[in-house]
């Protein structure tokens, strides 16, 4: 039997014991301190790029990102010093300075509220506002809302899909998600599994149906009913959450804690549902 090693550390004055291999953020959660994070995602390798999850670690010159820093014996950690709160607020203000006020980024907006960030503070120039990329009928890309969290890159790559259709290109504020020379999605290596859409924390990647309904102001989160069922295509048995609005499926996701999918689907599971609600005329024609 392997004996699980444990580590002892102090978080905001409270001494605690956690298993080796725990991240600081998980350790904080265990003592009831929830640390905000934007790029971190339960299903993905931490990218630690948003820096909203920084905490103060005694002995460290800079703040450290709690999503990926592993606990060590004797660490003394502070989660809400003025320095920490200042950095968090700075992250929110910087991100907000690149986008319009009406962005669809609930997690960022939550962080902004919690830190009392002023969206206008650093709006002194360049933004990411740009035309929407609407080049296929399954999902739309609006990089004006992108926070460059790298989730889509990770999910398209080794963390799940292994398709490697997208990556970050450019540097500095020009860094952006790219299909390779900005090709349209149908011309790229994309296989339209939509796993990137599922993990995207903003409206940067959004299902075409949801996007169209939002355009017409008909997307109403409160009226959506979610039913968990099983995919009808191949024999893998993927769990589907059908999001139904006004009697129609408008989105399909999969739960991250499901043993088969761990939140991931293929294009058929995610978008291949139209046959149950195709209009009759179309079917009679076929």
């Amino acid at each position: 039997m392997e004996i699980e090693e444990s580590r002892q550390l102090t978080i905001d004055g409270e001494v605690c014991q956690v298993p080796a291999g725990t991240t600081l953020r998980e350790a904080c959660l265990q003592v009831g301190k929830e640390i905000p994070a934007l790029c971190w995602h339960e299903r993905l390798t931490p990218a630690n790029t948003c820096r909203a999850c920084v905490v103060e670690l005694e002995g460290s010159r800079t703040l450290v990102s709690s999503c990926s820093r592993m606990v060590e014996d004797g660490m003394v950690v502070h989660t809400d010093t003025p320095r920490v709160l200042h950095a968090r607020k700075g992250v929110a203000e910087l991100l907000l300075s690149t986008m319009m006020d009406d962005v669809n980024a609930p997690e960022l907006q939550k962080l902004a509220q919690a830190t009392e960030a002023d969206p206008a503070h650093f709006r002194v120039g360049e933004t990411l506002v740009q035309p929407i990329r609407d080049d296929n009928d399954l999902y739309v890309r609006d990089y004006s809302q992108c926070i460059l969290c790298y989730r889509c890159v990770a999910v398209c790559g080794e963390d799940a899909q292994n398709t490697f259709a997208i990556h970050v290109a450019g540097r500095g504020l020009q860094a952006h998600i790219d299909t390779g020379f900005d090709r349209s999605l149908p011309d790229s290596d994309c296989v339209f599994c939509g796993n990137c859409v599922q993990v995207c924390p903003t409206g940067a990647l959004i299902g075409k149906t949801e996007w169209s309904l939002r355009q017409e102001n008909e997307w109403d989160e409160k009226k959506i009913q979610v039913t968990e069922t099983t995919c009808s295509y191949c024999g893998v048995g993927c769990s589907l959450d059908l999001h139904v609005l006004n009697g129609r499926i408008v989105k399909v996701t999969s739960p991250y804690n499901h043993p088969v999918t761990q939140g991931m689907l293929c294009v058929k599971g995610r978008y291949g549902y139209e046959y149950v609600q195709a209009d009759v005329a179309h079917l009679q024609g076929s």
Partner: peptide
């Protein structure tokens, strides 16, 4: 800036 993290990129 490589563009990876928010404080430096922006």
């Amino acid at each position: 800036s490589c563009g990876q993290c928010v404080p430096c990129r922006i």
